[in-house]
């Protein structure tokens, strides 16, 4: 009887030691999950969100074709700004990086925040038009009578089908008003 209880105590201790190892191992496993997560989900995130616009097409320029890009500028409603592209058109090889500039002036006597919204004609072209840098990514604050020249950097996807020989890139500036407190 006594010997038996002795052996129970000893076997309890051995069991405890083994289970403690499990706990320690799981503590370590928690840390292992950090690099594991980067490996598994990090790769997943890259393919999902990292700008494929920027990364992919730059390498391949298609010199056999040209696409005509026309630039347009509009100001919406009561916004007293003048706004124009510094060039009317470009002849662009698909895959080629293009730099152009727009210029805008605040004609009013007050500082105004404007936000440009781009659109494309024909609309099907939008899928092949990759902007890398654009003043439309942020709203623009112009002081009274301030003039600013702003860049657009883009490229046309070489996958663009042949029935889109001309694309119009059009911007419209809207005024951004601070929300009135009700």
């Amino acid at each position: 009887m006594m010997v038996k209880t002795m052996s129970i105590v000893a076997s309890n201790r051995r069991f405890l030691a083994k289970l403690s190892l499990v706990a320690l191992g799981m503590f370590g496993f928690g840390y292992l999950l950090a690099p594991l997560y980067d490996r598994l989900c990090g790769a997943e995130r890259a393919t999902q969100t990292a700008a494929k616009d920027a990364a992919r097409p730059v390498t391949r320029v298609d010199p056999t074709r040209t696409v005509a890009v026309q630039y347009d500028a509009n100001v919406h409603g009561s916004l007293h700004w003048s706004f124009r592209p510094l060039q009317k058109t470009s002849q662009v090889h698909p895959g080629e990086l293009v730099h152009i500039r727009y210029e805008m002036t605040n004609e009013s006597n007050e500082p105004v925040i404007g936000q440009a919204v781009p659109s494309y004609a024909p609309p099907a072209a939008a899928a092949y038009f990759h902007k890398i840098e654009c003043f439309c990514f942020k709203s623009q604050l112009l002081r009274p009578h301030e003039t600013r020249s702003v860049p657009v950097v883009f490229l046309i996807d070489p996958a663009i089908p042949g029935d889109l020989p001309t694309i119009t890139l059009s911007y419209t500036f809207f005024e951004v008003r601070p929300r009135k407190s009700a």
Binding site: A23, F29, G30, A34
Partner: peptide, 14 residues
């Protein structure tokens, strides 16, 4: 408990 509690301990330690 034995398998997940240590992971929480590791997490709050991080």
């Amino acid at each position: 408990l034995l398998t997940v509690m240590p992971v929480l301990a590791g997490t709050v330690t991080m």
